[in-house]
Each structure stands twice: as C-alpha cells, then as structure tokens.
Design a protein around this nucleic acid. Structure first.
Lengths: 151, 151
DNA sequence: CGTGAATATTAATTCAAA
DNA sequence: TTTGAATTAATATTCACG
C-alpha cells in the first residue's frame, strides 16, 4: 500500500470519526481492506504532525490546526493539501472539507479552474460543496481530478 | 502543592523549554522543589488540554492553539433552543431555520457533533441546511436526534 | 477530590528484511 | 526507504488512602 494514500485515509478517519488511539486507525484501515501495524501508524502520526489532545475526558487525535498562509498565489495542489482537503461524494454532489477558514479560498480556487462539469460551488467556512451537472460521468471526472491533486 | 499553581508551572515549562515527555515535566517541577509523579502530570495534561505533536523528529508538548470545545449536549440543547431552531425535511435534506445571524453558529455546532449520517452542512445567515447521506434510515436518525434536542 | 504507587495500556523505537 | 515483529518507553488508569 502506498504511503501517500494511507496518509490520506488517516486524515479522513480523523475527520470522520473519533479516533482515540492508534489501534483505532489500524481498525479503520483494516475495514477498508488494508492491514497496517501500529508501528507504521505511529510513524505516520509523526509525519503528519497529528496532535493528541484531551476532549471530554478522553484523548483524541486531531489534525494540526494551522491555517495555510500562502492563500491565493500558490499552486492548486499545494493549496488543497495545506488546507487538508478531504473529499466525499453523493449523487451529483462532491463535498470538499477543509480546515476552518479555508472554505472560501478553496472554493475560489476550484471555481477558477472553470471545470465545465461543475454547476455551482457553495463555500462555507470549512468546506466547498460542488454541485455537478447531472451526468454521472461528470461527477467521476471532477472526482478524479480532485483526487489526483490530493495526497 | 496546589493544583492551580502546578498547572501554571507546567504551562511555563512548556513555554520556556522543549518538553518531550511527562518525565521532563516531573524533572522541571523537581528542580523547582516540587516532587510530583508522572501519574499526576498525565492528569494535568488532560485537564489543560495540552497537545503532543511531532516537531522536527521528536515529540513535544505544546499549549492548545484553539480553545478546547467542551460543548456538551446541554450546551447544544441550549444553543438550538436559544436560536429558536425549527426543522423541516424533504428527501435527504433537513433544513434547520434559526434566528437571523445564528445560521453559522448552529451549523458549526451540528458539524461538531460529527453525526455519521450527515454528508454536508450548508450555513446561511438564518439557517443550516443538512444534506443527509442517501439512506432513509439516516434521515430519520438525524431528524430524531434534532427533534429530541428541541422543545 | 487529589494524589502516589503499581499496573495496564498505548505508543515510539529498534532491528531485520524486502 | 518502508515496513512488521518484537521490544522498550511512555502514558493513562486503577486502586487505596488521606
């Protein structure tokens, strides 16, 4: 398994669920079909600069709460990765979740691409919702383009 | 020794030097003349919401960058009711209408719940639109949860 | 409650191997 | 380099007590 992909999945796990321990991540990856050991997760956490912090009495892993300071001028892929963008899809919607404060920047960057399949882009503080023209191939196309830029 | 004072000293230690482990803090306090065990430091770190993060190749403790969100169910309940939240639904959408200006606050609060059925949350000035994953049971689940919090 | 001592659990590292 | 298995180290928790 590719390390880049694993890093992406780990970030996704942390955004999607409550991760209390490294074995939670091992379990998450196992459910996705990847058998990874705790030792590797430990290294990944170090490399991703994930933080461990108390939340309600229990410890959780979180993404580093830094904000990309190179907004506007940098490469598209740097922008998306600095904002820790995570994508999910349903029907003709693709949701791009970002660090708080980066939603509109990411939304603008995506708009500027002027991908023809995109019908509308809705920014929030920490996300950009892409409404794709009703055409399943179009959703796949946009998804693939975003995925290739992440990781 | 007073807990409050110890907490102060721990924060000071983290600001003054590089703290790699809890025993570093034990040593710091010992040098100040206080004999404290690792178990207590562990509890303090939890209470202070200190974070552990990789820096260069090593792990360091740092102060929390963002305020710990200790919004429990009570706060959530109060928040929604104070904003006079009203919910309505259609297909996989749930619209939460609020007092003008409260949309983003409510949207954030809902996002922080991390309910797994929610695909995306779109705030407006006076509402939060919840897009639920396409699964009728999921819509019911979210609806029930919101309804239980209102009124 | 808050704490230390002991313990259990979790996480980082070492080492061999691919 | 990257990784897993084994190991060590670090940290969270349990238990007893003040």
């Amino acid at each position: 398994m590719d390390k880049q992909l694993r890093h992406q999945l780990i970030k996704q796990a942390i955004l999607e669920q409550t991760i209390n321990s490294q074995s939670d991540i091992v379990a998450y990856l196992a459910k996705k079909g990847y058998q990874i050991t705790q030792a590797t997760i430990s290294r990944d956490i170090s490399e991703l600069h994930l933080i461990k912090v108390a939340q309600n009495g229990e410890f959780v892993y979180r993404l580093p709460q830094t904000r990309p300071d190179n907004q506007g001028t940098d490469a598209f892929h740097t922008l998306l990765n600095d904002a820790n963008a995570q994508i999910s899809r349903q029907d003709n919607l693709i949701n791009v979740e970002t660090l708080p404060g980066s939603g509109s920047v990411i939304a603008n960057a995506i708009k500027q691409r002027r991908w023809p399949e995109i019908f509308a882009v809705i920014p929030t503080d920490d996300s950009a919702l892409l409404i794709i023209k009703k055409d399943s191939a179009a959703v796949d196309a946009v998804w693939a383009r975003l995925a290739s830029v992440l990781g």
